[in-house]
Design a protein around this nucleic acid. Sequence first.
RNA 1: GUGAGUGUAGCUCAGUUGGUUAGAGCAUCGGGUUGUGGUUCCGAGGGUCGUGGGUUCGAUUCCCAUCAUUCACCCCA
Length: 404
Amino acid sequence: MIQALRGMKDLLSPSSEKYIYFVENCSKIARNYGFEYIETPILEETALFKRSVGESSDIVGKEMYQFTDKGGNDVCMRPEGTAGVVRAFIQQKYDKAKVQKKFFYYGPMFRYERPQKGRLREFHQFGVESFNQSNIKEDASIILMLKEMLDFFGIGYRLELNSLGCSECMPAYREKLVEFLKGEDGICEDCKRRRDTNPIRVLDCKNQRCQDIYINAPLLIDNLCPTCRGDFAKLKEILDGFEVKYIVNPKLVRGLDYYNKTAFEFVSDDIGAQSAIAGGGRYDKLVEYLDGKPTSGIGFAMGIERLMELIVMPESKRVGYYVGALCDEASEPCFELAIKMRKTQKTALNYDKKSLKAHLKNADKQNVRYCICIGEDELAKDKIWIKDLQDKKERLISRDELLG
RNA sequence: GUGAGUGUAGCUCAGUUGGUUAGAGCAUCGGGUUGUGGUUCCGAGGGUCGUGGGUUCGAUUCCCAUCAUUCACCCCA
């Protein structure tokens, strides 16, 4: 038997219904905030991700679905959504036009990882990107929008906030941290490796011994330049004004290299170890890295599979019709009737002649509102038997009455 | 990539101290006298006990390998 590849899942009802419910409602909210739908290719040149996500990240280092296509191009299946949107932004020359643009997207992402709870090789994200909005109010409104989405679905979460600094303050801090780490030999092997590749990452190491050591580590939040410090204070002020609860986590780092300044993460305690349900932040240098004109950017992405674990669908009401024949002679009329009804109504049709009991059972199982049956009596009277499964009333009506 | 756990019916699982016809619940289908559902009662179908090898008179059970899957580390949404 051929089965789906490891870490790849088919999406069937009821999960598929939940997926649509999720993206439709998120899309609606995003549109209210002025975002427009964008779709970018799943396959992109490998260089795009190497330069945006960053070669130091594990995503690029070892998790990408990378291969050479038949034309000899080095290509990748996208591991995240931002890079492609930024590429499209530049390709449309919006950077040169200096226009403000807001996009939302959703779709599959690919990372070659070992699957576990909340982590698949093909997974789906819903994300937004906003360009040319350097005002800190945009950071705030994006967080407010994300909060609104999660609140809509009744999802519980914790919001963590940090500032990663900018090109003014970050490099100096990084050196300070590396200096601190040089004197600490008690840290774990992973942290020793990170010390060279991506020192900021040591701060969110899960090893308790490391964390004990890092209590004394310098924190970026204490080393911000005046602009970053001011913006971060302003952001907190706005969020306070809207009564958004958050905690400042000075050890929050984002996994992708392109982030600076505002960084945030929405975390849930109810879905296992992979607890980040949404994450994002500012990336004011990314457009330049990708050969565009200097353009600020900010966005976030949500892990749809992780969110779907937390969403409870509203109870579905009985809707539509079920049509079934009680005798062989009625099967043609039933077929024709159903086809006509389908022009205006959701109509389930059973091709087989069955007992009334069996049809009612089927109709009930399919959660339709009305069960229609045609048998010898109905054919003789040229009427249609219809029962409302909700209020249990039944009657005989004419064809025209039903279709009209 | 590392570690641990699990593979028995469509699903969730029981069971076999190694021995004849491997069980339950749910789901499916049929029926409970002549055409009435979602909560009933009765019945039926459905399993080469993940795959390959080894030990044994005999393996679904013990051993090894392999594959799949789950969880955790790593990483990240």
